[in-house]
Amino acid sequence: MRGFEYVRATDVGSAVALVSGDPGASYLAGGTTQLDLMLKDAVVPQGLLVDIGRLPLRGIATDGDVLRVGALTTMEELAADPVVAERVPFVSEALLAGASTQLRNMATIGGNLLQRTRCRYFRDIAVTDCNKRTPGSGCAAVTGAARMHAILGASAHCIALHASDLCVPLRALDAEVRVEGAAGQRTIAFADLHVMPGERPDVETVLRHGEMISEVLVPLLPAGTRSGYLKVRDRVSYEFALTSAAAALSIEDGVITLARLALGGVGTVPWRATEAERVLVGAPATARTFLAAAEAAIQDPFTVPGTEFKVELAKRTIVRVLRTVSGEQS
């Protein structure tokens, strides 16, 4: 067993070099996932922890129709940003629907994108069958007490949910992430960042070891586009989503001219409802259209006894968010 080492990085380059050069090293930003998994649950082996918390990757700037968000910006900071509130309000709504103020003051935007699943079978090392931790070992959740689990992009290999709220509107917006690595910079489309589990649930993103998200580019919605985020959960607050939906609509003369829809609480990755968007665009903004969109959104779900209800709940969540965003009075 290697020991636990902590170093505080003072510039991006050396941080990247340090983690890239050590297979057991990882970044420490807000810490709300990493320390939990490493110190408390022991899911991630203890190794070198490179604290990037003080790197100059914090702040929000508007660049034309794109918001450039430093990866170390906290959830609270982004939620409070006036441009976000005006141009992409569902991003702010999603942020404030997640976690608690304390955690939002700690957790970073970059870290939020890379948060690990809350699946208790993944997080309990007493469970031996977890393909995400040990490829090929099986999935105890599939036959276990599943509820907070995925129904889209899931299979008997893994039903672990991507539980981020923030990622749902970012997926709807076609955000991009800037990444620093040993081989230099690259930009990754949000759609490409997260990888469906398939037969390798341990591979969660396209990031290579040592790559660090430095910036998230958030396209702003055209003026006149309305957006909303609806999160359905047992408690009123402070709970991961059972289902959620982020929607943005432009409606002209009763006809939908722009539609963006993404789902949370249901996917192994942040889920874009592309088929549903096709149904919406060009159609009248009516309950009937929204229902058709919801039907189109949930295709081939993989359910287990504890998650079957999510199929219908997700559809109703979609209908409700679309009705709300379209301004239709219920």
Partner: peptide, 11 residues
Amino acid sequence: RIVSCLVLAAQ
């Protein structure tokens, strides 16, 4: 406000 259980003293 933060939760002090999820931050290292060194941080």
